[in-house]
Amino acid sequence: MTGAEALAAHLGEGVSTTCRAWALTRRDGVVMGFTDHDRALHFEGIGFRAETGMSARAVAAGTGLAVNNTEALGALSDGAISEADIEAGRYDGAGVRAWIVNWQDVTQRAAIFAGTIGDIRRAGGAFEAELRGLTDALNVPLGRVFQKSCSAVLGDADCTFDLDTPGYVSERAAEEVTHNRVFRFADMAGFDEDWFRHGVLKVQSGAARGLSGMIKRDRVEGAARVIELWHPLGAEVLPGDALRIEAGCDKRRETCQVKFDNLLNFQGFPDIPGDDWVIADPAKSPRLDGGSRRR
């Protein structure tokens, strides 16, 4: 008998001892478990914490391709879900699974929801998170885009470039940090100016571990190197925190060929006619008999 069948038999007895439990898996690999029962539970290698102020509304389910949605409500606390982690984006797109569980025998359980976290609203020491079902992924447009620039992301399956190739990554400690957005280094020899523009800066230790930002500017100021992000990171980066700075690609064919030697995997259409050519109106041609245009 499966766990779901055992739970169904338990519910058919008339008196039940059930509660709800849900597991949250962040993109940085951290797994957290919660339950609305008054004592902690443990199954599937996850500890489900009680008395966290977490609760979930009923799942709105439908047939066909409709998206199954629900909401999670809870109080912000340092021990469970903190406002700082939400602000840093650590829960954006996190995976969520939910079960109905017999708390007297946790082998009797049934999964009732699987999906991801969507929008999160927070105020007054509490939060409200939208939970999106698995069918929400079907709303993402798929297919190739016909454009001059490359549609691949540097290092992905379409690009295939190995970012760990020597000369394309700088791993170093943070030195001078301003507003969690501007990083100044005393020296970064071996990399041309603008080498990291359009690239990614990833934090690998400290309070901002796991966070990353797109690089807006990469410039040389005297002997110093300045890396500037488009947006500040959501947590504080201190001098000494480990960073990984990856080279950037501006999606042009010339860059793919010269900087990365990866032209065979270029995913753009640089020779596609532009808008001016497509909407050009017919025009009367001048004389094409080879004679003088003078009359």
Rank of each mutant, 00 (worst) to 15 (best):
E128D: 07
E175C: 12
F113P: 07
N180L: 12
K251I: 01
A50F: 11
K216I: 00
C256V: 05
T107D: 11
D187Q: 14
P273D: 11
A189D: 10
C19N: 03
R172Y: 07
L142K: 14
L138F: 12
Q147V: 15
A157D: 04
G14F: 05
S285K: 14
E5M: 10
G45Y: 09
V226Y: 00
G143V: 12
R294A: 12
L11E: 11
G62M: 02
V258M: 02
R253M: 10
D271R: 13
S170R: 13
G199N: 08
C159M: 08
K251F: 01
S205M: 10
E71G: 08
G291N: 04
V67F: 06
L211T: 09
G95K: 08
E130Q: 15
Q204P: 00
L229C: 02
G47E: 02
E5L: 14
E44S: 13
A137D: 01
E193T: 14
V15C: 06
E128W: 06
R109W: 09
F161T: 11
T25D: 00
S292D: 09
V145Q: 07
P273V: 09
R184C: 05
V31D: 00
G124L: 06
I117D: 05
A9W: 04
S82M: 09
H179E: 14
L154N: 03
M54C: 06
A40S: 12
R225D: 03
V30Q: 14
E13W: 01
V177I: 12
A98W: 04
D275W: 07
A280L: 05
T70I: 09
T18K: 03
T178C: 03
A72D: 04
L131Y: 04
V30R: 15
Y91H: 13
F43G: 04
G124W: 03
G53T: 07
G290R: 11
R225M: 01
P239H: 03
T255G: 01
E128N: 13
A84Y: 00
D164Y: 14
A283N: 01
G74C: 00
A60I: 15
G240W: 13
A129I: 14
D281L: 11
V169G: 01
T18S: 04
W195A: 08
Q108W: 01
R121H: 05
R49N: 06
I215W: 00
A66N: 06
L163T: 02
D162T: 15
G213T: 04
G115N: 09
A223K: 10
L76F: 07
R172V: 15
F191I: 09
D218M: 11
A242N: 10
A23Y: 01
E130H: 15
D36F: 08
L131F: 07
I215R: 04
A80T: 15
P166S: 15
V140S: 05
R132P: 00
A280D: 09
G89P: 03
L243C: 11
E171T: 14
T107G: 11
H37Y: 11
L201R: 11
F269Y: 08
V258K: 13
A8G: 06
K148V: 08
E171F: 00
